[in-house]
Measured scan of single mutants.
Amino acid sequence: MTEYKLVVVGAGGVGKSALTIQLIQNHFVDEYDPTIEDSYRKQVVIDGETCLLDILDTAGQEEYSAMRDQYMRTGEGFLCVFAINNTKSFEDIHHYREQIKRVKDSEDVPMVLVGNKCDLPSRTVDTKQAQDLARSYGIPFIETSAKTRQGVDDAFYTLVREIRKHKEKMSKDGKKKKKKSKTKCVIM
């Protein structure tokens, strides 16, 4: 069974824990209790493949930012979460993405942009803004509501699919490099 290491990042209060708990335990946590770091595991079937999701729910508070490099190193894919009623959390996505790329030393890291709290009427981040940002990053965008469960499975499952595509691409690139290195030079 394939294991996928997913990391949920975003500013404090955007609903990272609520999304994760909704996926794992099928219930909505409405009281806000700032996370330092929590880890969850769940076995699911995605596109006919049974897999184990190892999900790291991270601290959004700035005082825990020193811990970010460590979990970013171990993560295979990242859910970059903002709240649709919090423009600052949307603007912060850029910083999370840049930090992930720096730590992973790669421009090509599996990510999904997630606009959470889409059940709320007080939207300050337009869907088109988020779609445009995701398009500019070359990553999928999904709106979710941890409260109603809308888009929750889709967000995590899409990230797994992005990781699969990335692994497939990397193995193809690896095979191309191996083929090239088999060419021999004969000096007579």
Rank of each mutant, 00 (worst) to 15 (best):
residue 14 V to S: 10
residue 142 I to Y: 05
residue 52 L to N: 14
residue 181 S to T: 14
residue 111 M to H: 02
residue 69 D to T: 06
residue 126 D to Q: 06
residue 148 T to A: 15
residue 68 R to M: 07
residue 176 K to P: 14
residue 110 P to A: 03
residue 120 L to V: 13
residue 108 D to I: 04
residue 154 D to Q: 07
residue 53 L to M: 08
residue 19 L to H: 11
residue 138 G to N: 06
residue 132 D to C: 04
residue 135 R to A: 07
residue 49 E to Y: 13
residue 120 L to M: 09
residue 38 D to E: 00
residue 12 G to C: 07
residue 74 T to P: 12
residue 2 T to V: 08
residue 86 N to E: 09
residue 92 D to R: 15
residue 114 V to T: 02
residue 100 I to K: 01
residue 62 E to I: 05
residue 124 T to C: 09
residue 137 Y to L: 11
residue 78 F to E: 00
residue 24 I to M: 14
residue 70 Q to P: 12
residue 146 A to G: 07
residue 178 K to H: 12
residue 126 D to G: 06
residue 51 C to G: 10
residue 109 V to D: 02
residue 93 I to M: 15
residue 5 K to N: 12
residue 133 L to C: 04
residue 137 Y to G: 08
residue 41 R to W: 02
residue 111 M to K: 01
residue 122 S to V: 05
residue 73 R to N: 14
residue 113 L to R: 00
residue 90 F to L: 11
residue 73 R to P: 14
residue 176 K to S: 12
residue 71 Y to T: 11
residue 112 V to N: 00
residue 19 L to T: 14
residue 57 D to K: 00
residue 131 Q to A: 06
residue 162 E to C: 03
residue 26 N to L: 03
residue 88 K to R: 13
residue 30 D to L: 10
residue 10 G to V: 01
residue 128 K to Q: 07
residue 13 G to V: 12
residue 18 A to F: 00
residue 86 N to K: 10
residue 48 G to F: 03
residue 151 G to V: 14
residue 174 G to L: 11
residue 129 Q to H: 05
residue 109 V to G: 02
residue 4 Y to Q: 14
residue 143 E to G: 09
residue 176 K to W: 05
residue 34 P to I: 02
residue 185 C to Y: 03
residue 174 G to W: 01
residue 6 L to Y: 07
residue 19 L to S: 14
residue 65 S to H: 06
residue 111 M to T: 02
residue 15 G to V: 00
residue 45 V to P: 09
residue 136 S to G: 06
residue 27 H to S: 13
residue 56 L to R: 01
residue 145 S to I: 15
residue 150 Q to S: 15
residue 102 R to A: 09
residue 182 K to N: 07
residue 35 T to F: 00
residue 37 E to Y: 15
residue 168 E to T: 03
residue 97 R to M: 15
residue 157 Y to L: 08
residue 113 L to E: 01
residue 74 T to L: 07
residue 19 L to V: 11
residue 71 Y to S: 14
residue 186 V to W: 06
residue 48 G to W: 04
residue 154 D to Y: 04
residue 172 K to R: 04
residue 117 K to W: 14
residue 31 E to L: 06
residue 152 V to N: 11
residue 43 Q to D: 12
residue 29 V to G: 03
residue 175 K to R: 09
residue 91 E to R: 10
